[in-house]
Simulated scan of single mutants.
Amino acid sequence: MTRIGLGNGQVIISFPFVEPPTITCPPDISTGTEPGVDFGTVTYMVTATSPSCGIVSISCSPSGVVHNFPSLPVAEVVETMAFPQGMTVVTCTATDAAGNTSSCSFTVTVTNVFPTATPPIPNNLEARCIMVQEVYDWVVSTNRERSKVSIPDEFLPLVDEAIQSGQDISIQCIEPVVPPPFPLFHRSHTECVSDFSCRIVNVRRVQMTINQTTFLAGMVQFVFQATVLLRVFANGDFLFEFPVVVSFDDEVILCLPEPLDENNITCRITGIECTPNAHFLLGGRVELEVIICKEIQVHAEVKMEVLGKFCSPRPNNIPAPTPTPFFRCPSFVFPRQCQSIFPSQD
């Protein structure tokens, strides 16, 4: 504010000039309606600035909502509203603390058809008939067995002597090494090794209802068996070792549609953990806890029509001796299927 003195004693008071706020609207918007709906929903943002006085409100028409602010140097609003088909002009106004205003406008155009989607990039995929293993069911679970194992009679004198002489007895359990998770599929469930095995004891059909759907499932009884090795030490010195066979029986509900049977089921042990109790029990027994991880699959070979193309071999990127000039390796050329014969066109 400035005071100017005049000769007659009058004083003129002048106010400094305050710039009006700056308001920014979005660019024009075009959208479409959903099928069966005669309006389009649009979200837009408006920003206003006034570093000298501060923004106190922003309002837009036709929404009619007034957004108030505590004199902010920068303020923004986001509005979502439904617009009728056709073109609508939206006008927004910003007001600063000194009462100055600024406005901006943009249009919203609503059509009754969404813009067409970009067509997919053409490719050379073709319908081909292949044979694959379809997995009907795949189950993983664990079994825990806690049992009391008797020390073989020939080793009992060694244990008694070590205990009577005050030696510290410790017990170690050695688990067999199970195969890795790959390959995921094993051809025969009858394959087993001396340290662990899995076999199917019984298969029967049961009527099941899950999620209000009734179907015929397979109730399959399995026996899993593993051999662990117990080692006994006295004051850290090895005394003796002996094998212990643990067995687990389990019944599992499987998706086993007819005519699939036990020949379509594979099972295997994927992990073994053995934990012995370091204290001997009466009668020279050891408490042993064994946990096994098991995997069960139901599968069958099926023929499927898929969209695909033949694979091509990669080039040999590792340096190797160059073949003689007169010799040329054959290329891989696959014959085309007789589409008019197989698969048949219904």
Results as ranks from 00 to 15, higher is better:
residue 184 L to Y: 08
residue 81 M to T: 03
residue 260 L to W: 05
residue 10 Q to P: 03
residue 290 V to R: 01
residue 119 P to S: 08
residue 78 V to F: 02
residue 309 K to D: 13
residue 291 I to Y: 01
residue 251 E to H: 07
residue 111 T to W: 04
residue 299 H to G: 09
residue 145 E to C: 00
residue 155 F to D: 02
residue 108 V to P: 01
residue 153 D to Y: 05
residue 86 G to Q: 09
residue 172 Q to W: 08
residue 139 V to L: 09
residue 241 E to T: 01
residue 164 Q to A: 14
residue 217 A to H: 05
residue 191 E to I: 08
residue 335 P to D: 05
residue 296 I to W: 02
residue 31 T to W: 01
residue 16 P to G: 13
residue 194 S to R: 14
residue 212 Q to R: 13
residue 20 P to V: 10
residue 33 T to L: 05
residue 236 G to N: 04
residue 333 V to Y: 12
residue 174 I to S: 05
residue 159 V to T: 09
residue 287 E to T: 07
residue 137 D to P: 03
residue 245 V to T: 11
residue 71 S to A: 14
residue 10 Q to D: 12
residue 16 P to S: 15
residue 296 I to M: 03
residue 234 A to N: 11
residue 289 E to D: 09
residue 206 V to T: 03
residue 80 T to F: 02
residue 135 V to I: 15
residue 299 H to A: 14
residue 12 I to A: 09
residue 200 I to D: 01
residue 237 D to M: 10
residue 19 E to I: 06
residue 267 C to S: 06
residue 120 P to N: 09
residue 61 S to E: 12
residue 84 P to W: 00
residue 209 T to R: 12
residue 222 F to D: 02
residue 26 P to W: 01
residue 242 F to R: 00
residue 205 R to N: 12
residue 25 C to M: 04
residue 57 S to Q: 08
residue 94 A to F: 06
residue 170 S to V: 01
residue 225 Q to C: 04
residue 178 V to R: 00
residue 307 L to T: 02
residue 258 E to T: 11
residue 281 L to V: 02
residue 29 I to K: 09
residue 77 V to E: 04
residue 240 F to L: 00
residue 325 P to E: 12
residue 331 S to Y: 11
residue 90 V to R: 09
residue 233 F to S: 06
residue 346 D to H: 08
